[in-house]
Nucleic acid binder design. Structure first.
Lengths: 192, 192, 192, 192
DNA sequence: GATGAATGAGGCTTCATTCAT
DNA sequence: AATGAATGAAGCCTCATTCAT
């Protein structure tokens, strides 16, 4: 999994992500990805055993980046409300700066062919549990709520909003800071 | 002249749904679907122009069933809280009785290759708008909330919970009436 | 091969001919032919063993009509020049009145999948031989020429001209009486 | 890196031509062609977008070879009679040496599914026009004749003779030099 | 390490034909 | 006699993967 030309494999991952987002996993062929990355068809097989392995790696690393960010937030010892706001703000910022990344994660989460990576699942559970503790400590989260509740509220609503906007369910208007406040408020209320 | 066996195409749709749920759209081949439905490979092409057309039809009809149910609820003129509870309860019941159906809808909603059918999109907007009105009339939904907020709360959280359970993110425990009450409460709070 | 509804099978033959001319033998499906003839898909199988059999029958009958016309001309005991002129004129008239018929014959003559029907081959040989005799009797055909020469001249040049016009090789201008005289002259010269 | 085996694609074209001649375009399947060429099924799709594209390429190149030969003849500045004789002789030689090639061209010219390639059509018109000029210059072609007349005489009669022999309309006897002289004489007379 | 030519399994789809009614 | 629902063989084509260079 080590490469001489670090750039190359990064290019592959980048183009793979972009193409998968725009054409779907099956729609993005190895040939097209390789061409976009200016790499030979066979190149990626020196790093990954197959196409799915490449995608899993991208998926895993994107999730890790996100989880790492949350861990940093958790380390900062903010009140839960503030923490949540920053978490969601982070999502919105990424959704704006690199929309493909958020869309990619959203796609993969729901893709039949890709499980949530085991290591990430453990991290996710851990994060939800810590968020729950933090919220309860601050009396921001209701006594009876569980980490699972945190999961479905904190990691569904914002992503779903971003996705709804992208698809134009009601509007394609770009998310504003008002939207950010609204969705944060909704999440906070939800966990009351 | 043989008369059309109306069961046949129903069998095809049923088996297609099941196989797609278990193996994904691309994983479920025409040959396999036909075999499971005890029908010839070419049979479905007498009803649909291609595989995607079949799947879209199933998708559309399942969504329609769901939307029809909600319209019935809306007609009943219940208070919003009760309406929401019944709506979510319905989802839970289906998720238990025909888990593939809910999973199928959940998959299709997030599938890159399938758009939300136009007619259903209009119905969905209409439903969210009506739910919003009802909630505001009852003072159950906050003044500033929008139909889009209703959308992401009412149609994301319960489905996401069902999906989380199926995947065993935290637990694979079957959803109980307590879970139902909890998630309803969360949704109600979210829309406060 | 007898039918109760003579019209029906005639309609089938007519539509088959038209569709084959416009879409080719493989492009014209039984379903489409049946639909155009307002007949069931299975209908033609009560008259012919298969699709090819239907087409052969149409082919044979169209050739027979043409051969019959030539035999009538031969009976009229005209000088060869006049005979040839009338023969070619007949082709031109049909090409104008029912262009599909001439095109159909032209297509079938050159189609890999359809042999010239045996009975028609014998008639064709006979016709060429009689034409040769007539021409030699009149001193219109050179001594050394053969029935085969008559064949390639009389039955190639006019049809090829009609085809070239249809395809617009040089022009798509409709064949005039001048064209008729020209091509007749060419054929006569060819056989000198 | 394996270098492209230039023989492979040539083998494919060769076998495709042979199989199409013997079984027709639709009768010659990709699988069979690939097998005959000792190549994988998918191989030809690395060179052509589909089956028709392969066949068009063969068609075009065979026509080009023939046209190139005629252009060489035209360059030689021979009297028209000699030029025509050599042209027809060339056809006879090829028909003997590689009978499939002539048959292939003859089939394609008359195939409903394949147009005469545009570039070849232009060349053909040019050739006929130049032949006409040459013939008129030598007083070998009548004043009133046109390039279209040259077309149907020069490019129909010899091919039709070859085809008639192959099919055994009158005889299957191989074309002799006498036949060559005869058909040349017929063509010359035709254009008088 | 890297390439890209070549493979071939497997998918979707068509359509001539059958046969129960 | 006629229908037309249903069949299924067979075709075309895609694309992840391999491996000689």
């Amino acid at each position: 999994m080590r490469s001489t030309d670090t750039n190359k494999i990064e290019r592959v991952k980048e183009e793979a992500l972009k193409l998968i987002v725009s054409k779907g996993y099956h729609g993005a062929s190895i040939a097209e990805i390789a061409k976009a990355a200016n790499v030979s068809d066979g190149y990626l097989y020196r790093h990954y055993v197959n196409k799915a392995d490449l995608v899993k790696d991208i998926y895993r690393s994107k999730l890790k980046d996100f989880h790492d960010f949350i861990y940093e937030l958790l380390d900062a010892d903010l009140p839960f409300g503030e923490l949540l706001k920053r978490l969601i703000a982070h999502l919105f910022v990424i959704a704006k700066r690199e929309p493909e990344t958020v869309q990619f994660i959203f796609m993969m989460i729901h893709d039949h062919d890709f499980d949530y990576p085991r290591s990430r699942l453990l991290a996710l559970r851990d994060i939800c549990t810590k968020l729950l503790e933090r919220g309860k400590r601050d009396n921001t989260i209701g006594e009876k709520l569980t980490a699972e509740d945190v999961l479905i509220v904190v990691f569904s609503l914002p992503l779903k909003l971003i996705d709804a906007r992208r698809k134009g369910v009601f509007t394609t208007r770009e998310a504003t800071s008002t939207d950010l406040d609204n969705i944060t408020g909704i999440c906070l209320n939800a966990l009351r």
